Amino acid sequence: MPMNETINYIEFGSRHLAASKSFFEHAFGWRFTDYGADYTAFEGGGLQGGLFRSERASRAEQGGALLVLFSEDLEASLEKVSALGAQICRPIFPFPGGRRFHFVEPGGNELAIWSDKEPNP
């Protein structure tokens, strides 16, 4: 049961719905349920949500919300998303509390991954 007045669901626009779906499925293990040709719902990302076909996508530089995932191994996460077709738009950088990087998934949405762990030697 969702908690009152908490974020419960999120939707992303995607320029390439099938590419976004494949990316998130392979990168993070999200599971999808299709609702027609222009919408797919996901679960398994710590939050339920969906992807809808759109000519626009979310980018932080344009005022879009930035979704930030956590990783135990930031370098391994960067390698994985790069191998699956993500474009790294901000390489790993430090910030108060840890390190992170930003990437754009194949459907055009910018996300970030952060870690409070130091790089593995």
Rank of each mutant, 00 (worst) to 15 (best):
R31S: 11
L67P: 07
G108W: 00
A41M: 06
F42I: 00
G63L: 09
A27D: 08
L67H: 09
G46M: 13
A19N: 08
V68K: 10
P119M: 02
A76C: 03
A86N: 05
E5V: 05
P91S: 13
A19E: 11
I7D: 10
F24D: 08
S14Y: 04
S20D: 07
R56P: 09
F95Y: 00
A60N: 06
L51D: 14
A76L: 07
E75S: 05
G29C: 10
A83T: 02
F23S: 08
F12I: 14
A18K: 08
G63D: 11
Q62W: 13
L74Q: 04
D116N: 02
R15P: 14
V81C: 01
L84T: 04
R100W: 15
H16I: 02
G49T: 15
F101P: 14
M3K: 12
D38H: 13
R53M: 13
R90G: 03
F93L: 04
S77M: 01
Y35Q: 12
G13I: 12
Q87E: 11
A83Y: 01
G50L: 13
G64I: 04
L66P: 08
L47K: 09
A86W: 05
N4D: 00
H26W: 01
H16Q: 12
N120H: 13
A76N: 06
R53L: 13
N8K: 12
S54H: 04
I92Q: 05
A86V: 06
N109W: 01
G98Y: 14
L51W: 10
F12H: 14
H26I: 03
E110G: 03
I88G: 07
Q48R: 13
V104G: 14
P91T: 10
A60G: 03
E61L: 07
A57I: 03
T6I: 05
S54T: 04
I88H: 10
C89V: 11
Q87T: 11
R31C: 12
G98L: 15
L69D: 11
E43D: 03
H102T: 14
S77Y: 00
T33G: 14
S77H: 00
S22R: 08
A37F: 11
E110D: 02
L17M: 08
A60F: 08
N8E: 14
